[in-house]
Design a binder for these strands. Sequence first.
DNA 1: CTAGCTGCAAAATATTTGCACGAAT
DNA 2: ATTCGTGCAAATATTTTGCAGCTAG
Lengths: 144, 144
Amino acid sequence: MDDRHGQAAGNYEAILREAGVRITRPRRTILAILADGEDHPGALEIFRRAAEIDPAISLSTVYRTMKLLEEKGAIQRHVFEGGPSRFEQAAGRHHDHLIDVETGDVVEFRSDRIERLQEEIARELGYELVSHRLELYARRRKPD
Amino acid sequence: MDDRHGQAAGNYEAILREAGVRITRPRRTILAILADGEDHPGALEIFRRAAEIDPAISLSTVYRTMKLLEEKGAIQRHVFEGGPSRFEQAAGRHHDHLIDVETGDVVEFRSDRIERLQEEIARELGYELVSHRLELYARRRKPD
DNA sequence: CTAGCTGCAAAATATTTGCACGAAT
DNA sequence: ATTCGTGCAAATATTTTGCAGCTAG
């Protein structure tokens, strides 16, 4: 079965444990939310969802945990046009994002051709590619 | 001759005048800086350069002017990873950016192939492309 | 036990805005 | 003259941090 998410929750804990980091109550709560989410929530949204489970949790802890997870490579941070940071599980292979400009929804996609072209361009300019960011801002096509 | 910049300064004024906007001292100062710059300065950097010419200028005015110019389509705003907004003249044809992760320098490039692929991907996903953002974060290749 | 976490409040960063005065048309 | 723009200070939004108490290992 494709229990990508339930699996990922355990995976997060494993990653943190291995890094010698304590598994605390707030962290477990946040991890569960990340593992559950099909979307790309921001810090505040994660905080809201976490507060429902454990009202004692603080926004600072959400931010601290996100930073920690990002450093450990467990999640990825995205900053789409004019908005706050939003997060997603790092599990799965690399992909880029299409953002629905009307709803804010995010669609993931991947193009090996574009990936290759990027490497090529960087090389041509005398650089070594470290990372990249490709975002398509688009509007759902109406069948006219 | 390729007096892209001197020309652009006048161009800015024309754009603003046409929009029924007053050409004031601070605006003229900021416009001159934009027209001059070969780089992608942020609001604070523009403010610093402007203050050298006219110490009375305020940071608010820089922000207000940038917003105005952006609305009029005279400049483009970029928000690169983890930094404040940076601006560039909208003149010239579309291009993407490679950011030197060590120095923050920006190299402009353009790839018709990538442009086409993006259109294609959006269409395949059932969307109509509105705009996009492609940034390559890279490090200068050392000749080993 | 005790180093690492947490919540809270305050700071930091980037940007926007209300207001009374001054300048452009 | 009148409207629009400015500087200043205060407000906003997002994220980070100092600190004293709490807790996981």
